[in-house]
């Protein structure tokens, strides 16, 4: 049998679905989708998704593992919860999208330049440092995420915005040096580390 044929035959087997059930947040819901398409029609950035949620659910069932895990579609989710509130089957679509995004990232299949993937990591790292988000540093890290040169450009482009914010006392340059923090920082960090360990331990190997 040719490779193509084997690939075809592998389709419509439920092994990837089982993987999603085991390793993706709320993944056990995927099989309950009835393919009505309401989620796709409700998604605010829908037109920018290569594969809107309904299609992703179908692709999972059709065993299209690589295509699902390498698409950047789920990173387009703004967490607006429109889909959840409308899905007639009550699927927690938002969380499944988040879960798929994270799973793809965990497996190293997310493209390096995916801006939301990058931003979310920067956000998380920022949050991990002090237990609270330091918006100024967050902003700067975003501007400089593509290297120093691009960073200056980005920062210049948004200079006016920053100035406006400072004027309104909603951005504080002093934060760069101090900023807010939780007091029990070590306890906080230990807690998160433990949670990460538990989560990593729960991942089942499917390859």
């Amino acid at each position: 049998m040719s490779d193509l044929n084997t690939a075809m035959i592998e389709k419509y087997r439920s092994s990837f679905l089982k993987e999603v059930e085991a390793n993706v947040e709320e993944g056990e819901w995927v099989k309950m989708c009835m393919q009505c398409g309401v989620c796709s029609g409700s998604c605010p950035l829908g037109k920018h998704w290569d594969h809107p949620p309904q299609e992703i659910f179908m692709m999972i069932r059709a065993n299209k593992r690589d295509e699902v895990l390498s698409t950047d579609s789920m990173w387009m989710c703004t967490s607006c919860y429109n889909c959840i509130s409308r899905c007639p089957r009550g699927l927690p679509i938002t969380h499944i999208m988040h879960g798929l995004a994270v799973y793809s990232k965990r497996l190293g299949l997310t493209q390096k330049q995916q801006p939301t993937a990058q931003f979310s990591q920067i956000f998380w790292d920022n949050l991990m440092k002090k237990g609270r988000v330091n918006e100024l540093k967050l902003g700067l890290s975003i501007y400089f995420k593509d290297g120093f040169g691009q960073g200056v450009k980005n920062a210049m482009a948004n200079q006016k915005l920053g100035q406006n914010m400072m004027k309104a006392k909603r951005m504080n340059a002093m934060e760069f040096f101090s900023g807010h923090s939780v007091k029990d920082l070590s306890g906080f960090q230990k807690m998160v580390k433990k949670a990460q360990e538990i989560e990593a331990g729960n991942i089942k190997d499917f390859k």
């Binding site: 419509y12 439920s14 099989k31 009835m34 393919q35 179908m58």
Partner: peptide
Amino acid sequence: FYRAGQQAMVTFSK
């Protein structure tokens, strides 16, 4: 019943 079928991992493909 349809949902039960889905629960039981019957694949419904349009």
